[in-house]
Design a protein around this nucleic acid. Structure first.
Lengths: 190, 190
DNA sequence: CCTACTTATGGCACAGTCTGACATAAGTCG
DNA sequence: CGACTTATGTCAGACTGTGCCATAAGTAGG
């Protein structure tokens, strides 16, 4: 059996409760202490699960990593790179709860501290995209072009999601991403 | 005449001294208190000139804004959007001191806290690019495609500069940016 | 049951960033 | 000289984040 003292709450529950509190009061208006109190744990424990406050909001992205990686692996080799990435993101988002996502993404889009992300989740996601681009270009993942293009694509995706959340666009988040990435190719050609 | 008590040091001198201290000891190894002591001013005053610690490093970018905006205004209408932006950035950087720039950019590239930027300078710069893209696309500056593409292009530029500084690339920073942005168009087409 | 071990949690102190309120210094203008 | 204006300094405080150590709550084995 599993040794040691069992956690009071699973990571999922913890995250759900924390996000609920953050959404209800606003990211900048609530402190880690208030979040911890609301959940019923100590601040120290909260910080152990989420090293940075921003991780509370971004960490949920972790769940879509495996899915995204799988989509990349299965991507049609004949499909253009950006199209393949767009398709993968669209699929990952199509299964998600749009209303909950919109609320969380709007929070990110409207909170500067959350937009400038160096969270572990965000970095892992970027690496995934960079490696995919590198394979497509046939270049090493630490080369200039994969890094520059991968980072740019990630930025476009995040910005598209933010725009979708801010504007209250009637479509799905996946559609917004597809549009945004297509805008990238248009600019590249024009 | 100018009323009130004159500043002890101009903003330029302040910034130069602060950057010198940061570069010599490392961004994360030096505190605002140590920087203030090194200059000979109080921490509070230092914070008044640079609201965030990251501004000390990024603020110098401000100087190239007007130049960048001018280049955009003079850009050849027949030139492709990315080419025009690339050319403008190259020109702005060609006049700069490469060694000093490399040192500062390497600091940014190797300090996570400096890469995730929401500094005022960075945001102004982004808006400049977004507006240029919007004019080229004939779309409003708050539309999805200009925002997504503009943000992506800025990310590619910054990432290219970081790569150039990290790798010790023998070329100029402008060349690295040109390469990185070209990689963006390649991915868009492939 | 009792002991050893393992893991989660809590409490505490602390460094560091950043802000607000207020006093003080150093100029100009009349 | 006195009124005004601007820059600086001092102080207290909130907040994030980390290290250290004690404690709680389980399991495994005698």
């Amino acid at each position: 059996m599993r040794r040691g003292r069992p956690p009071l709450l699973g990571r999922q529950d913890l995250r759900a409760q924390a996000i609920r509190i953050v959404l209800s009061r606003g990211y900048e208006n609530v402190t880690m202490g208030q979040i911890a109190d609301g959940i019923g744990i100590s601040v120290r424990t909260l910080h152990r699960y989420f090293p940075a406050k921003a991780d509370i909001v971004w960490d949920e992205v972790d769940d879509s990593f495996d899915a995204l990686g799988d989509r990349f692996a299965q991507a049609d080799p004949g499909m253009a790179t950006i199209e393949a990435i767009s398709a993968a993101v669209v699929e990952v988002f199509s299964g998600a709860d749009n209303d909950a996502n919109r609320e969380r993404l709007r929070l990110i889009a409207m909170t500067p501290e959350l937009q400038s992300v160096q969270t572990s989740a965000f970095l892992r996601w970027r690496q995934e995209i960079i490696h995919f681009v590198a394979r497509r270009l046939g270049e090493p993942p630490d080369g200039l072009r994969p890094i520059a293009a991968g980072t740019a694509i990630q930025a476009a995706i995040v910005e598209s999601l933010g725009w979708w959340a801010r504007e209250g666009d009637p479509g799905s988040p996946g559609e917004a991403v597809a549009w945004g990435l297509r805008g990238l190719t248009v600019v590249g050609g024009v």
